[in-house]
Computed example of a mutant assay.
Amino acid sequence: MKKVKTWMKILDIAFDFKDRVNASLGRETSAEWNKRMLKEHFEYLMSLNLQGLHEVLDEIRDIWKSGLYEGFMSSFEERKIISRPLTFKELANNKLATLATANLPVTSLKTISLSKTDLNVFRSMRPLIETTYYLNSGCPFSWDDSLNIAFSGLDARLLSALDRFDQVEEVPELTAEFFQKLGKTQIFDKKTSDFYLTITRLLVDIENEIFGMRFRDFNSDYVPTEGLFIQLLAGCNAVHHNREHIIEEDIVKAYKTFFKLMKTNVTQYKAIHELVQDMDENNPDYSSVLICKSCGDYYKLELDESVDDFESCHCGGELKYLHYEDNE
C-alpha cells in the first residue's frame, strides 16, 4: 500500500475542511470544480482545428470510460520486480540507452527551464514501458521479464516509428546524430506550450475523476512521468521532420503513440538473444544493492557504505536491501 507523506495528509485535511465549508454555504466543491474544468478543457480542445486532435480526444474518452486509463495508472503504482535488478554493466548492452546517455544534455535547471529534451525526459520511457508490460502480465517482473523490457528493442521502435511501432519488424538502428538532434528539440513557443499544458490538465482532470481529489489517492510521480514521455515522443517526431522546435502536431503524434502503446500487449516483444545470452540472474557483477519498492530504482552499495546510511529512496519509497554472494 502506498505510503502517504505527512505534508500530503495535512493538505488533505485542509482541503476536506474547505470542501465541507463550501458545501454548507452552497459554494462549489473541489469535485464540482474538477468536473467544470474537465468540461471546459474538452470543449476548448474540440474547438481547435488540428489534424488528428479529435481522434486523440476520442481515444482519451475511450481509455477513460473503458477503465483502461485507471488500470494503466494503477499498474504504474503496483509494478514490482521479484528478481535482482539489472546491473549497470548489463544495461550497457542496451545501445539505445548508452547513446542517449552519451549524447543527450544532462538534466539541469537550464534544460528544464528551456523545455529541452534532456536525459531526464528520455528516462521517462522505461517506467511507462514497464507499466504497459505489467498491465498485460499482471505479475511482478521475473528475470526474463526484466530482460524483455530492457532488450527487446521496443524502445527503439517507439522512438523511430512512433505510432507505427507495432509495424516495425527489425529493430531500428538509431545513431548518435539522432540523439544529438533530439537533445536540441524543445517546446519553444507559447501556443504549443499552452496546448501541451491543456491536454495535460485534461488528463489530470480525468485522473481526479477516477481516483479523487486528494493527494492520498494517486501517485504523484505518474503525471510528470507521463508528461515527460509525451515530450520525448514529440521531440522524436520533430527530429524526423528536421525541426528543433516541437509544434502542436508533434504533441498529437506523441499522444497517438502513447495510447497505442497502452493498448498493445508488449509482452510479445522478447529480449534479443545475442544481447542477453551471457547474463545470469545468479551471477551479478556486484554483491549488494538497495532497490526501491515504489519506483524500482536501485543503487549499488560501495565498499564503505551500509544500508543504514540510507533512509528512503529519492521518491520517498521504502528501500529493500538485496545481497548476492560474490562468485568471482
Rank of each mutant, 00 (worst) to 15 (best):
D217N: 13
N237D: 15
Q186C: 02
F178I: 02
R36S: 02
F72R: 05
L261F: 06
L203N: 12
S83E: 14
K2I: 04
L96N: 00
Y299T: 10
L301E: 05
G26D: 12
T225K: 07
L232Y: 00
L174M: 03
A234K: 00
E244N: 00
K300A: 09
S83Q: 08
G212M: 12
T192E: 00
S75L: 03
E32S: 11
D163P: 10
R123F: 06
L147V: 10
F215I: 12
I246K: 02
T131V: 01
Q51H: 11
F165E: 04
E248G: 05
D217Q: 13
L91A: 02
A271R: 07
S287E: 11
G183Y: 06
D304P: 05
V106Y: 06
F310M: 01
N265G: 08
N120L: 13
Y133F: 10
L261E: 03
T200Y: 11
D189F: 08
R84Q: 15
Y286F: 15
Y321K: 05
A100K: 06
N120V: 14
M8Y: 10
K184H: 04
E305K: 10
M46L: 15
G26E: 13
N242M: 05
E325T: 15
V171W: 03
Y44R: 12
E207Y: 13
D163T: 06
E78Y: 11
G67L: 00
R84D: 14
K80C: 05
D62V: 10
R36I: 07
E249L: 12
E207V: 09
V252S: 09
M37Y: 14
G317W: 08
S294E: 05
G52A: 15
N208A: 11
E173P: 03
K293V: 01
A176N: 10
I60T: 15
F88I: 06
L232W: 00
I81D: 04
L114I: 07
I63D: 04
I149Q: 00
K35S: 01
Y324V: 02
E173T: 08
D163Y: 13
E173H: 02
N136W: 03
A254M: 09
S30T: 11
M37K: 15
L154S: 06
H241W: 08
A234I: 08
N208K: 09
D205T: 12
N282V: 09
T257N: 05
K65Q: 12
K116L: 15
I210W: 07
F195W: 12
K2Q: 01
L68Y: 06
T198F: 04
S193V: 07
T257Q: 10
S30W: 06
R164S: 11
L57M: 15
L53S: 03
R214K: 13
H273S: 15
S24D: 09
D309L: 01
R20V: 11
Q268R: 14
G26C: 05
D163G: 03
S74W: 06
V171F: 08
K293M: 01
T264F: 14
S193G: 04
N120H: 06
W143L: 15
M46I: 14
K260F: 08
I149A: 04
E28F: 12
I82Q: 14
F211A: 13
L147W: 03
K190R: 14
N265V: 02
E249F: 09
H323S: 14
S75F: 04
G296T: 08
A31Y: 01
V121H: 01
L232I: 07
E77S: 12
D58E: 13
